[in-house]
Design a protein around this nucleic acid. Structure first.
Lengths: 350, 350
DNA sequence: TTGAAAGCGCTAACAC
DNA sequence: GTGTTAGCGCTTTCAA
């Protein structure tokens, strides 16, 4: 194994840089960190020899004195899920160019495992912890208050006085419904997930406000199967409708398929709009779904920014921060896009 | 912010433990690490006071002396994808109870970003790096040979003399095809992804071997749309067929849907089998897909184990290690399961 | 402007 | 058996 031979013996330390540059370690350190005062010439010389030697400071040694490790922990109970993935990507994006690395800790729903991970992170002197989950109205199975490091909650519920980031269900839902209304649809129905989910409640409330008291709201689970079933029920019970606002993309896909099987044309006869913009579902639906994107990556970026500020000792106003969603137009509602591309939009390889 | 007050001032060091236990730091260290020799009484006393004081060793300080950080880096270019997620989960699982933490580094396909991440990991003295990707026959956009730490490649291509883990496409494909044959199907066709993918090639080769020279193989992209299109083509050109082996679950779903639209009943008229076991696709298909699971989590676990061994200085035989796939029976092929549950199997909330 | 020296918290030789 | 001492690689007073 090659790696064994080029081991740490070769790795050059600040001591080497100092020696070659003809200064003391102290001066070398200051030169490289742009601290202290010295002639610009000395600073330059040190920097150049450092570069020439390929010097990279040992982050652990540095962390030991600076009391700052430039690492943060990311705790999630959604190892497989679609929500934390974009969030993680955003976090990483925000932190990588600050030289901060992220410890990934998947904890499923296991409190013991969670505790283990948190302890491990603390032992490793993380500068902060970002907690994220798959549900906005549930807490992770571990208490993160009173830790010796700051915590930011993203897409999971935190304590009252914590810094928490969530996407704006209300605004997202309003965007969806307004879109349907703007397209001239007037007989709306809402097919969504279990009432026990805050997301379902918030979106349903927005629907109630905008679509009126009489507009039907059907709660079920978050699956395609429920989308099918809901259409069957609407068929049997409800009056005519020309638009369906769905609680997520899976339900929307079920609805679209069921509608087609009944001979209705989407979007001509019925416009259907989803929620989540989960590409594997929304782009594969025929026709592709117009839907609401929660901007989860941006949410992650924001979480990264905030944990950094906290780690640097800055004050961050606690409370829940709500980030806006965004309408993604494809073809299931007609409108601008729908008119142009008929069917068979190229699916991206996912 | 609470955390500011309980800061490191409170964090107790081994020095405190030693003092309270009435021994020297050296003895305390040895007692806690089960090294050195001393009366069992002393060791016990130290351990107990450590526990009583809630002592947690500072991992950075320890790493500095031991030349071992108990962290590893995970490099992936598949931040959104379905492949690395289970792999990551497995890695984490294998490492967490060894006290090893994982740095997550998403690099997309950006060579510069990759380099940045690798440097950051090296600076942080990782004990090893696991490289993983979304495609078994492509390299990450960064050269990981000649690093001062060991590297294991999982689900991505590595250099000749590296330790590489991949799933067994051939065996997986054979399992799928054998299953169809065992169910009495004799007129098989294979609908799969682009020929440029090694996975597509390997699976097609297995198909050729087992299904015979005459059995049709259709290459397209990895999408549902291609599944639809392929059925249209088979309808027009090919002779009768009673089973379709699909290159992935998305294609399979497209095939199943297209078949149903043409009035054929799956699995009665045609058995369809997928590949990947991506639940959101395979479980939502009607009927749910029988498919091949690549055991990616186990692959991750194995990668974790191997990187640990390497980090500990043990020798690991280089070369490609192939891990077996597993048949997951649902209803799209009939057989045991299909006979019992007809349709509308409850979809799990994903 | 520069450098000597004292740590950061822990481990590991080597004495006693 | 237990303690003294010397680091790990870096930063940071403080003195020169």
């Amino acid at each position: 194994m090659r790696y064994a031979e080029v081991s740490k013996a070769e790795r050059i330390r600040i001591y080497d840089v100092a020696r070659v540059a003809g200064v003391s370690v102290a001066t070398a350190s200051k030169a490289l960190n742009d601290t202290g005062r010295m002639t610009e010439a000395t600073r330059m010389r040190v920097k150049q020899t450092a570069a020439a030697l390929g010097f990279r400071p040992n982050a652990m040694a540095r962390a030991l004195t600076r009391q700052r490790s430039f690492t943060v922990g990311l705790l999630t109970n959604d190892t497989y899920g679609r929500f934390t993935l974009p969030v993680m990507a955003g976090i990483n994006e925000a932190l990588v160019d600050q030289g901060v690395s992220v410890f990934l800790c998947g904890i499923e729903d296991d409190a013991t495992l969670a505790r283990t991970h948190v302890d491990a992170m603390l032992d490793k002197q993380v500068d902060g912890i970002i907690a994220t989950g798959k549900r906005i109205d549930r807490r992770l199975p571990v208490d993160l208050s009173n830790l010796p490091v700051p915590v930011v909650y993203a897409f999971t519920q935190g304590p009252e006085d914590a810094v928490t980031l969530v996407s704006d269900d209300d605004q997202g839902a309003r965007a969806a419904i307004s879109h349907l209304l703007a397209l001239g649809r007037r007989r709306l129905v809402h097919v969504t997930g279990p009432e026990s989910f805050a997301s379902a409640q918030n979106r349903a409330k927005a629907f109630r406000d905008l679509a009126g008291e009489g507009a039907p709201i059907l709660h079920g689970d978050w699956s395609e199967a429920w989308g099918h079933a809901a259409v069957a029920r609407l068929w049997a019970e409800a009056g005519v409708f020309d638009a369906v606002f769905c609680g997520n993309d899976q339900i929307a896909r079920g609805v679209v398929d069921a509608l087609r099987e009944r001979g209705l044309v989407v979007p001509r006869d019925v416009a259907v709009i989803g929620f989540d913009n989960w590409e594997i579902v929304s782009a594969a639906t025929r026709p592709p779904l117009t839907t609401i994107d929660m901007n989860l990556k941006e949410l992650g970026r924001e979480a990264g920014r905030l944990i950094l500020e906290l780690a640097e000792g800055k004050t961050v106003e606690p409370g829940v921060r709500t980030l806006p969603c965004r309408l993604v137009m494809r073809q299931s509602c007609g409108g601008a896009t729908g008119a142009v591309r008929a069917e068979g939009e190229a699916l991206q390889e996912v």
